[in-house]
């Protein structure tokens, strides 16, 4: 179709997000512009409160920007209806969080099938597909474990499998290794790198670990007070 969209899966321009706390305005993201290339791993680093999560949530369609543009597949997120945003979250992006955010009452398999259900996968195909996804993150032995019965690393793998359920173009990971020890963190980062290679998945990850960020990423965005600082 269009080469530019293919090259730039995601394009952010003049993005602003201002929170309001009573009458006080809190700008969390200030005028950020960036072009994300397809198939890259991009890390976002910065001090706490610099607006990393906010930027990720805006791209993920969980939050709505105050002004600017977020183009994904040629469509502007800011102009989307709430239902279109739901579809965006469902099919175009997958999100992983520091605190896993698995549903406690459902086992690993059921956490993944829920995402498949939202994606419209027929009931009979879901279990097989979910098992396949869990296998691809190395969890074939833990299908029927509830989140409480999983280690942090395993739980994060389930979250990754769930995020990938509907074949998203972009994976958004917000400090996904923040709750994990360094060796487990490395395993998870390796998993992401594999996924990036195998599926040509664009990955956008927020991290505090600048060393790893520089090692694995094609590009590192440094944020300070909601703005990109160039090095």
């Amino acid at each position: 179709m269009n080469d530019t969209y293919d090259k730039h899966i995601l394009e952010v321009s003049n993005l602003c997000k201002i929170y309001h706390k009573g009458k006080i305005e809190i700008p969390a993201v200030k005028d950020i512009s960036y072009k994300f290339h397809n198939g890259q791993i991009i890390s976002i680093v910065g001090k706490s409160g610099s607006g990393k999560s906010t930027l990720l949530n805006l791209i993920g369609g969980l939050d709505v920007a105050t002004s600017g543009q977020i183009l994904i597949n040629g469509k502007d997120l800011i102009k989307m209806s709430r239902y279109e945003l739901a579809l965006h979250r469902r099919f175009l992006v997958g999100m992983v969080f520091q605190s896993f955010n698995l549903i406690h009452s459902r086992n690993a398999l059921q956490n993944v099938t829920l995402a498949l259900a939202f994606g419209g996968v027929p009931r009979k195909d879901r279990k097989e597909k979910a098992a396949e996804l869990l296998k691809s993150v190395g969890l074939e032995q833990r299908l029927y474990h509830k989140p409480a019965e999983l280690s942090g690393g395993e739980a994060q793998r389930v979250a990754i499998a769930r995020a990938l359920a509907n074949n998203p173009k972009v994976l958004l990971a917000d400090e996904l290794t923040g709750n994990l020890d360094s060796s487990t963190s490395k395993e998870i980062i390796d998993l992401l790198m594999n996924l990036n290679k195998e599926k040509n998945l664009t990955i956008l990850m927020v991290t505090h670990d600048i060393e790893t960020a520089e090692r694995v990423s094609d590009n590192v965005i440094r944020l300070k007070d909601g703005m990109v600082i160039s090095d």
Binding site: G60, L62, R82, Y83, A86, L87, R89, R90, F91, M95, N101, L102, I103, L114, A115, F118, G119, R162, A163, A165, N166
Partner: peptide, 16 residues
């Protein structure tokens, strides 16, 4: 609340 947030994050629409 968190569970509903999760459902929204993985693509659940308001209507669903």
């Amino acid at each position: 609340t968190r569970e509903i947030g999760v459902m929204k994050a993985i693509g659940g629409s308001e209507w669903e």
